[in-house]
Amino acid sequence: MTLPEFTLLRPRNLPEAIDSLDRHRGDIQVIAGGTDLVPSLKQRLFAPRYLLDLKPIRDLRGIRNGHGLTIGAMTTVGAIADSPLVAEKFPVLAAAAAAIASPVLRTTGTLGGNLCLDTRCLWYNQSPFWRASCGFCLKKDGKVCHVAPGGEKCWAVFSGDTAPALLALGAEIEIASPRASRRLPLADFYTGDGMARIKLAGDEILTRVHLPESSAGLRGAYFKYRLRGSIDYPLAGVAVALDLAPDGTCRRGALAVTALNPKPQLIPGAEAALRGSRLSDDLLDRLAELTNRAIKPLSTSASTPDYRRHIARVFVRRAVRQAWQA
């Protein structure tokens, strides 16, 4: 398969990158590791005139310890999965990063790319010939959503693994632009719309992820449902982070999911349910039910919506139990 024609821009530093984005606004796309973007370009899901390669900007790479942890957006997910520092301070992130795709992709894919991952759907991630055969779809070149034909909304599903872990940890992201750089909770980054999935303007770049010191040392677990032991995107993913008192009571905790909605999300009410609780079947049932209410899986993937609901509930129970007893 050929790639579309484009001009590759390789800025040496962030200001140069921002400048290019600003100049070619609307006709330019950022490429990080390219593990998701390059196949999508081959499928002509995008055909920008310019590609902005962030690889040369060394400043965007690396894990810095300090008050909390700062991870550059261009840090590979493999480096995060292998980092003893991450494993020690934020085990749920290490687990989520290690669950991504396969080793040969983790060496290349980046944290920023994983957070900005395009939403996925069996009717969308296909070749131009294939998409033409079904008259295209709402997300790209068409008018109909084949998954929910009556609707106006795109239900393509967000399938990144690290986002739920970072949501559970209360991570913030830093975004650079021609204006001042801004910092926002990751939870505010996602729109829930399968088409315009993230709140990132055309002249903005996600540069860093900040993990708060207050979340360091939280117990965590990430459960990923997929049909194979590797390669596959998640069909459901559950991340949990817990702060337990010495007597086993939960002081603070959060639960987040991925691959079940057009956005990764914290489960509303989970934090309140966890606070001050002890591990019990009742609690787990309550969390499972809260999750069930928050998700809307549709037939965007190989697994059925019903089953993904079921597995989400089971994995919530298991992940919370495992984190609690870790």
């Binding site: 069996l122 294939w130 055969s133 194979r228 032991g229 590797s230 390669i231 190989a302």
Partner: peptide, 19 residues
């Protein structure tokens, strides 16, 4: 429509699979 005409969604066993 054939929904999985590729090796990502047609799941030939990988080395760490149940299969």
């Amino acid at each position: 429509f054939l929904m999985n005409p590729g090796l990502l969604e047609y799941r030939s066993p990988a080395s760490c699979d149940a299969a």
